[in-house]
């Protein structure tokens, strides 16, 4: 470990690194390791029968499907908001810009509580939507809605800086060559935004897969229909079915690790673009 490539002028390397590794190890790695250890003590058959029950499969489907749809919607809405915030000056732009961060700061329980109230029959938005047959509370759609609330800021905040840095020359050149505005956007600007949009999508998707606090309020948590994987983990824990809960948690953890790896690679890719 003593690879001293440069002379260390500043003191405190060893204690600060030791504290960092010790704290991270004890607080995060040891508990996660314990979870894996616990799941591995199950044996393959037991593990498989725990993670692949009909109810668990339905929960993965709901988690995955709702997260996918919500993150795709977040990309579309996030691109729109980022575009307007960067390109069109309008009164109150700074206020709107800071409001984009609200989902980061608002506790998920509050988001869930208020979303469950807005889209019911007598709610502020439900009174218009429910007569149209759109049920945005206690349904699959409700999960998507609240995940869009959580996902949009991720896309806006990854796309915005990239969009702001695009040189005017690029669009000028396109216009000089006779491209219409739409062609310029479609063939010049959009390809430049793709890496950032994909990163934003991945961040929103990763967050959606694990989201619990807001979904538990709005979805109604009906097994096989609107039950997401984290809710299933909690109900297994409440039934003292620790083995099954741990097994499903390991599936989610494996997913999170691969998302984390993917996001790191994506960020490297978008930096090289």
């Amino acid at each position: 470990m003593n690879t001293r490539t440069t002379k260390r002028v500043l003191p405190g390397f060893r204690p600060s690194l030791a504290w960092t590794l010790g704290y991270l190890g004890l607080l995060v790695l040891v508990p996660l390791g314990a979870t894996f250890l616990r799941a591995s003590s199950l044996g393959w058959n037991e593990f498989w029968s725990a993670v692949w029950t009909e109810r668990a499969r339905a929960a993965y489907r709901v988690t995955f499907g709702a997260s996918l749809v919500a993150s795709l919607a977040s990309v579309v809405l996030g691109l729109l908001v980022a575009w307007v915030l960067v390109r069109y000056p309008f009164p109150g732009r700074r206020l709107v810009d800071s409001l984009v961060d609200l989902p980061f700061a608002l506790p998920t329980a509050v988001a869930g509580l208020v979303y469950s109230d807005l889209y019911v029959e007598k709610g502020w938005l439900g009174r218009f939507l429910v007569p149209l047959g759109i049920r945005g509370a206690y349904s699959w759609l409700a999960i998507v809605l609240v995940l869009v609330f959580i996902g949009v800021p991720f896309v806006v905040r990854t796309v915005q800086p990239v969009l702001a840095e695009i040189d005017a020359d690029v669009e000028e050149a396109a216009a000089c060559l006779g491209a219409t505005r739409w062609q310029t956007f479609r063939h010049v600007l959009f390809p430049m935004l793709v890496p950032a949009a994909v990163t934003g999508f991945a961040l929103a998707f990763a967050r959606s897969l694990g989201e619990y606090g807001s979904v538990v309020f709005v979805s109604g948590n009906m097994p096989y229909k609107t039950e997401i994987a984290p809710v299933l983990i909690v109900s297994r824990l409440e039934e003292f079915q620790y083995a099954e809960a741990t097994a499903i948690a390991v599936v989610l953890l494996a997913l999170s690790f691969s998302m984390l790896l993917g996001i790191n690679l994506l960020e490297r890719w978008s930096r090289h673009e």
């Binding site: 991270l24 995060v28 040891v30 508990p31 996660l32 314990a34 979870t35 616990r38 990763a206 967050r207 897969l209 694990g210 989201e211 619990y212 606090g213 984290p230 983990i233 909690v234 824990l237 620790y242 809960a245 741990t246 948690a249 989610l252 953890l253 999170s256 690790f257 998302m259 984390l260 996001i263």
Partner: peptide, 19 residues
């Protein structure tokens, strides 16, 4: 260091229970 951001809060809680 960013790992806790990608772990589901429920899984984080469960891992505390496992320890």
């Amino acid at each position: 260091i960013d790992l806790p951001f990608s772990v589901s809060p429920v899984v984080a809680g469960l891992s505390m229970m496992m320890l």
